[in-house]
């Protein structure tokens, strides 16, 4: 055990215990001021979004010139977090980090005080690639076998996904439209429950995000059969995409940092730049690799806005198609 690191550690936690972390170095970017920045995350603590938010908090603080706190607000299906950011003073000190299901899908399907366009994406952190997987000893072991079996016996296969219309459910809907196959859709509380059911042999197929099943795939407990993305996932390089299998379905989920649109554009730009700078640092990259957070290709304002517009169009299409049925 390295005593030096231990000392730093003691100092760090002592700082926390006496007076909640003081990373503040107020030498640059005076316009943001010294008030702490809050990253609101509309999910529970401990998930993959949470880990990513904490990597930002730990690394971007010195570049943004003030402390960054991560606040978890899972209330009202995440809507309480969005409401908090929308209601906050538009000075760039309260920002949101979420995937599209909170800002786009729920805004379109629920009654909210804001429109999809009211969220201004400033950083494009990563793209999550929804992945279909089965138990290793299941008779289905590839995309082709799945489609063949589902065509032979419609509605015989049970497919576990998290909440209805979430980012691990919409791709399934798209695929069913594309191929005409039918599966039994089984909503679960999330990736953990889906995985329990797959491993226990209670259901046939499930969808999740790659980092959460890597270790199960490597140990040979489950087989990932296909990825709904344009390119294969970095962490599961042997798993084909649905495009490779001949089905033109791809639905990557961008993880974005947003401000509310009433925040002045100069502040949006400034925040975007300091977060980017923080994430490009070596520590941030090491943390990202350890956590499989995929922060090796972080994109700024323009890319974020472009991908947000594209995703909005796609979600609208899928929702319209579902409503027609």
């Amino acid at each position: 055990m390295h005593i030096k690191r231990a000392k730093i550690a003691t100092a760090v936690s002592a700082a926390f215990l006496t007076c909640a972390a003081g990373f503040a170095t107020a030498d640059n970017t005076p316009s943001l001021g010294n008030d702490p920045i809050r990253i609101v995350m509309p999910y529970g603590a401990g998930g993959s979004t949470d880990i990513t938010a904490r990597i930002i908090a730990a690394n971007a603080a010195e570049h943004c010139g003030t402390r960054i706190d991560v606040v978890s607000m899972p209330g009202a299906g995440g809507m309480e977090g969005l409401q908090f950011v929308a209601d906050a003073e538009p000075n760039g000190h309260t920002i949101l980090m979420a995937d599209y299901s909170a800002t786009i899908t729920q805004t379109l399907t629920e009654e909210t005080d804001w429109e999809v366009e009211d969220w201004a994406p400033i950083v494009h952190l990563t793209d999550w690639k929804p992945t279909v997987y089965v138990k290793a000893d299941h008779e289905i072991q590839s995309i082709e076998e799945w489609v063949a079996l589902a065509e032979a016996e419609p509605n015989s296969l049970v497919f576990g996904h998290a909440d209805p219309l979430s980012l691990v459910h919409l791709p399934l809907v798209l695929l069913e439209m594309e191929t005409g196959i039918q599966n039994v859709h089984l909503p679960t509380t999330g990736g953990g429950e889906t995985r329990t059911m797959i491993l226990g042999g209670h259901i046939d197929l499930g969808m999740t995000l790659p980092p959460s099943i890597v270790s199960n795939v490597n140990s040979g407990e489950v087989t990932a059969i296909g990825v709904f993305a344009d390119e294969r996932s970095d962490v599961l390089p042997d798993v084909p995409t649905f495009k490779e299998a001949g089905y033109d379905v791809s639905f990557e989920a961008p993880l974005l940092v947003y401000t509310y649109s009433s925040v002045p554009e100069s502040i949006q730009q400034e925040l975007s730049e300091c977060i980017m700078k923080g994430l490009e640092s070596d520590t941030a990259q090491t943390m990202s690799t350890q956590a499989s957070a995929g922060l090796n290709n972080v994109q700024g304002l323009e890319s974020a806005q472009a991908i947000y517009r594209d995703t909005t169009v796609r979600v609208k299409e899928v929702l319209a198609a579902i409503n027609e049925e």
Partner: peptide
């Protein structure tokens, strides 16, 4: 199995990942 069975387990899972 890497399945967090409770909120606490999820938090410890996150801590493992960060380490």
């Amino acid at each position: 199995f890497g399945i967090p069975g409770s909120a606490t387990a999820a938090l410890f899972g996150a801590a493992f990942i960060l380490m």
